[in-house]
Simulated scan of single mutants.
Amino acid sequence: MPSVTRSWDRLSDHKPLIGFVDACLRGPAQVVLQNNPLTGLLVLVAIAWGAFENGQPRILGGAVLGLVVGTATAVALRVDEPSLRKGLFGFSPLLTGIAVPTFLDDRPLMWLYLVLGAIATTVVTLALNAIFKTWGLTAFTMPFVLTTWVLLLAAYQFDRFTVLTNLKPMFPGEGQLSDGRFNWDLVPTFLRGVSQIYLINSWVTGLIILVALLVNSRWSALFAVIGTVGATVLALWFGADATSLDKGLFGFNAVLTAIAVGAVLHRPGALVTLYTLFGIALTLFVQMALTSMLTPLAIPVLTAPFNIATWLLLLPKRHFAPVANHERAKETVVSTVKHTV
């Protein structure tokens, strides 16, 4: 395997087309803060499985189109080559490409809307990273969140689109949480908490994503499991909506936080694990608060809770480990911003 990896790296270094494909393959992996084309390929397989399992093959098409358009936009804007090669301008457009066909009805204009959204996501990535660099942070997936929110809210004003979020606009406290229908077969629920990172409801997709993580980092895979189990159990304990629980909707943001804080930005250890467990709870509470805020608008929270919680956890700059030389931090989404956590 190492020889194959070296051969692929050499090929991508000398062949521009292969280099572009390599950057695109790393994009799906960078959603979960990994820099590995094989991990990215497995994530695409996971997305494909979930898309066809749920009878929505257009989601796979949207993911690939968003990924390619976002990466091509970065090339056109002449972003720095190392960041481009690591797939750092593909992961947020990939998520935008999944969100648009997920939340809007399928019609030809939707695909133009998706392309424009993917281009915008890359531009927003550059803008937010320039802003967050001031505090030694990076934008993570917030460009996808902001762009998708704008696209969905704008779609309400266009007669050619129908928004399919399945969310009923209401003020906090007006609706009723579903009760007693939670499926106590917890393992599939935990796995769906992983798959929902990519807006897919499939335990098989979640399992493939865990395998993809394991290919690059056993610590990332472990903390992904800790994230989905911890957040789901805590949400169950506090009496969260049973239907959302069963779909894994309270796990995916915590998975991202757990990977970032527990396995990528800090060297794994006892103190880091405790900090990560707190971060999982913080992420869940932020998600619940944002859900209350956004329910009147009938738009989903997406990965905003992960971004907010992780920024809050990083700003105190606790020196748990020498991150600058940590092997898990060298080649990830955070490597474009020079900072010490």
Rank of each mutant, 00 (worst) to 15 (best):
N35I: 04
P37F: 00
P37H: 02
L38I: 13
L38G: 13
L38A: 13
T39K: 00
T39L: 01
T39Q: 00
L44A: 15
L44H: 09
A46L: 05
A48W: 01
A48M: 00
W49C: 03
W49M: 01
W49E: 06
A51L: 01
F52Q: 06
E53M: 01
E53Q: 05
N54G: 15
G55P: 03
I59G: 09
I59R: 03
I59K: 01
L60F: 08
L60Y: 04
G62Q: 00
G62I: 02
G62A: 02
A63I: 04
V64F: 04
V64C: 05
V64D: 11
G66V: 07
L67C: 14
V68E: 06
V68D: 09
V68F: 09
V69N: 11
T71G: 13
T71M: 03
T71H: 06
T73H: 04
A74L: 09
V75C: 13
V75S: 14
A76Y: 02
A76W: 01
L77G: 13
L77T: 14
R78Y: 07
R78A: 14
V79R: 07
V79D: 11
S83A: 12
L84Q: 06
L84T: 09
R85M: 06
R85V: 12
G87S: 00
L88R: 06
L88W: 12
G90C: 06
G90Q: 01
G90F: 00
G90E: 02
G90A: 09
F91P: 10
F91H: 10
S92A: 12
S92Q: 13
P93T: 15
P93A: 15
P93M: 07
P93Y: 10
L94C: 10
L94R: 10
L95H: 07
T96W: 05
T96D: 10
T96N: 13
G97L: 03
I98M: 08
I98F: 07
V100H: 03
V100Q: 10
T102R: 04
T102M: 06
T102H: 05
F103Q: 01
F103H: 02
F103E: 07
L104F: 11
R107E: 08
R107I: 14
R107H: 15
P108K: 03
L109F: 07
M110A: 10
W111S: 14
W111N: 10
Y113I: 02
Y113H: 08
L116V: 14
G117Q: 06
A120Q: 07
A120E: 13
T121D: 10
T122Q: 08
T122H: 08
V123Y: 11
L126A: 13
A127C: 10
A127P: 02
L128N: 15
L128I: 15
N129S: 13
N129D: 15
A130F: 00
A130N: 05
A130S: 09
I131L: 12
I131W: 07
I131H: 04
F132G: 03
F132C: 08
K133V: 08
K133G: 14
K133C: 02
